[in-house]
Design a protein around this nucleic acid. Structure first.
Lengths: 193, 193, 193, 193
DNA sequence: TATGAATGAGAATTCATTCAT
DNA sequence: GATGAATGAATTCTCATTCAT
C-alpha cells in the first residue's frame, strides 16, 4: 500500500509530466522554460530537478511513454478484429495509428521530430504485445527467401514511411490532406509487402 | 562591374553564411549563438543584422541553397548518362543523392530536420532542370489511369522515403548502415514505381 | 554499556564526519554541499542537522580533531627517542609533522587554510602532553633574559613558519619541493632558537 | 588618443574592479554575488562578463594588482632613504609593508589567503624595481658559500614569515598585536639573515 | 531519532538586440 | 555600411532548510 507521502510524490511527478507535455505541444520545446512547466504543474522550481535532469530529460521520457501507448492501443484495437489476410490486418493497424494522430495533431508534431528506431526497440523489449506485432510480421515472410534482418529493415521502412507521410500531411498539410494521401500511401504499402 | 565596397559587402555576407553553416552542422542550431557566427565570420555583431533578421533567417536560406544545389547536381550527373528505362534512371539519381549525403553527413543532419515540401516547390519554380525532373516523372505515368495529383503524391512519398531512410541510416546508423539499407530501399522503390 | 540505538547514533555521526572530511579534501569546502555529505554518509538529509549546525560547524570540528591528533602523534613519537639537546628534539618533532603532511597532502591543504592560534590554545588546554611541549619550550629559555610572553611569540613564529613553508612546498611545490626546502628551513630554525 | 567610447570602457572596467574589491573586503568573497558587484559598479549584469570570466577571475586580478602595488610602493619608499647596512634596509622595507597593511587591514585579509609565490614571480617579471629588490638580496650573499637557489629559498622563507605573522597579528590579533609581535619578528629576521 | 520530499529564494550565466560612434 | 560595447530580461540550476510522517 502506498502512504500519503508516496501518493503525493506520484501526483507531483505526474503533474510535471502533463504540464511539460501540454506546454511542449502548445508552445514548442524551445519556447518552454522550466519555469513555465513548474508554474503550470503547481510545484516549486526545485521539485522539477528532483525528477528530471533537464528539459530534454522530460521530453525523452514523454516521447517514450506516448509513443509506446499509441502502439499498444493500436495493437489492442487490431487484436479485437479478424482479418482475411495479413495485408488487411497491417493496414487496419496503420489506419488506427493515423486516425489517432489526426485527433492528436500536436502529439504527432512533438513525437515525430524526436522519435528514433531506438525508441521502438525499447518499446519492443518492454512490452510483449509490441514484440508480438513484430513476430507476426516476421512470420508472414517465413516461407520466402528473405533473410531475417531484411524483414526487420522492411518493417523499418514501412514505419518510417507512415510516420513521415503522416507528419507532412497531418501537421503541415503537405503535399495534400491525410485523407487524400492515405489512398496513395495504402496503395504503396500494399505494393511493398 | 562591382565597386570595392560592393565586393566587400558580398564577402561579408558570404562569410556569415559559411560561418553559420559550419556552426549549425558542428554544434547544432540551438547551441549556435549569433555571437558565435559573427566571431567565426570575422565580422562585427551589428553587421549580422544588416543581412539577416535572426538565426532562423540564415538557416532557412542555407537550407534552400544547399538542398537546391544537391538536387541540381544530382540531375546534372544523371543527364550525362543514358539508361535502359526510367526505373534505372530514377534509382541512379537517388543513388547519387545518397552517396552525396554519405560524404556530407552533417549537411544531411541539418537539412533533413528542417526540410519541407515547400522547399522543393520553390526549387521547382526557380530552376528549370528541377521542374524537368518532375515532368519526366509525370510523363512516365501518362498512359496509366493515375491522376496527375496522385503522381505528385507518389513522388512525394518516394522523396520522403529516401530522405527518411537516408537520415536514419547515415546519421544514426539505425537500423543498419546505409549500404545494407540501400538493398532493401531500392527493392522497395522498384516495387512502388 | 551502550544500547544499540546509541551505537547507531555514534555510527551515523562518525560517517558524517568522515564523509565531510573526504569531500572537503577531495573537492574543497566551497564545492561540497550538505547533500553530498549525507549522500556519501548514507544518511538522510535531515539527520545532518541533528548533529551539526551547518557545513562550517563540521569543518571546525574536523580541523580541531585532525590537528590535535597530528600534534599528539608527533609528541608521542618524539618522546620515545632521546636527544643530545633541545634543538635536535624540536627539529625531530617538526620533521615528524612535515613527514606526516607529506603523506597527507590533502589534510594539510584543508587544515592550513583554516587553522588559527586559537586551535592550538584549545588543544593545549585539552591535552596535557601538548601543554607539556609548550612548557618544555619555555623551560629552555628560563635562564635567558627573554620574557615569558616573548617565548610564546617565538614559538608562534616557528609554528607559523613551519606551517606556511610546508603548505607552499608540499601543496603548491613552490618555490621548491619540501625536501629541498627542509634544508634551508631547518637551518633557519636553528638560527632562531 | 582615446576616444570617448574607449574612455567609457576603461571607466566601466575600473568601477567593476573597485566595486568588487570593496565588496570582497567588506563581506568576503563567498558572500559577494556578481549581482552585488554590478549593482555597486552601476553597470548591467552582462557587462561583468564582458571583462571577467567569473568572480574568481576578478579576484585573481585584484590580488595581483594590489600586491604588486604594495611591493612597488615599499621599494620606492625604501630607495629614498640611505642605510648603514643591508639588514637595516630590509627591515625598513618590511616595516613599511607591515605599516601599510596595518592601515589596510581588509586588503591584507583579502590578499593573504589568496597569495602565492607565483604572484611574486609574475610581479618580478613585470616590474624592474621588484626584480632589483631580489638582485640586491642576492648580491648580499655573493661572498658566502650559499648557492643561488638557496638564497631564493631564504627570501621566500622571510616573505612567507612576514606575511604569515602580519596576517595573524593584524587581522586576528593572535597571539598578540602587531606592535608586540614586531619586536620578536624583527629579532628573528635579524638572526636569519 | 530519523527520514527525504518539497520548497523557493538566489546565484550564475547567456544572448538577442540596440545604438552611438 | 560597419562596428562592438552595453544592456537586462530571461533562463537554468543550486542548495540550505523545513517539516510532516
Amino acid at each position: 500500500m502506498l502512504t500519503k507521502a508516496e501518493i503525493n510524490k506520484i501526483k507531483k511527478e505526474n503533474s510535471l509530466y502533463s504540464a511539460a507535455y501540454d506546454l511542449f505541444t502548445e508552445k514548442g520545446i524551445n519556447d518552454t522554460a522550466i519555469n513555465d512547466i513548474v508554474k503550470r504543474a503547481g510545484v516549486a522550481k526545485g521539485t522539477f530537478y528532483l525528477y528530471f535532469k533537464d528539459k530534454y530529460d522530460v521530453l525523452d521520457k514523454i516521447i517514450l511513454n506516448k509513443s509506446t501507448k499509441v502502439l499498444r492501443d493500436g495493437i489492442k484495437a487490431t487484436k479485437t478484429k479478424t482479418f482475411e489476410n495479413f495485408s488487411q490486418e497491417l493496414l487496419y493497424f496503420i489506419d488506427y495509428i493515423i486516425n489517432f494522430f489526426e485527433e492528436e495533431k500536436l502529439m504527432l508534431k512533438l513525437i515525430h521530430k524526436n522519435l528514433s528506431w531506438a525508441v521502438y526497440k525499447k518499446a519492443r523489449k518492454d512490452y510483449k504485445e509490441i514484440d508480438d506485432l513484430y513476430l507476426m510480421f516476421e512470420n508472414e515472410y517465413k516461407d520466402t527467401d528473405m533473410k531475417k534482418e531484411d524483414i526487420e529493415k522492411l518493417l523499418f521502412i514501412i514505419v518510417d514511411l507512415v510516420g513521415s507521410v503522416s507528419y507532412s500531411s497531418i501537421v503541415l498539410n503537405e503535399p495534400a490532406s491525410i485523407d487524400e494521401m492515405k489512398v496513395v500511401l495504402f496503395d504503396t504499402i500494399r505494393k511493398i509487402i
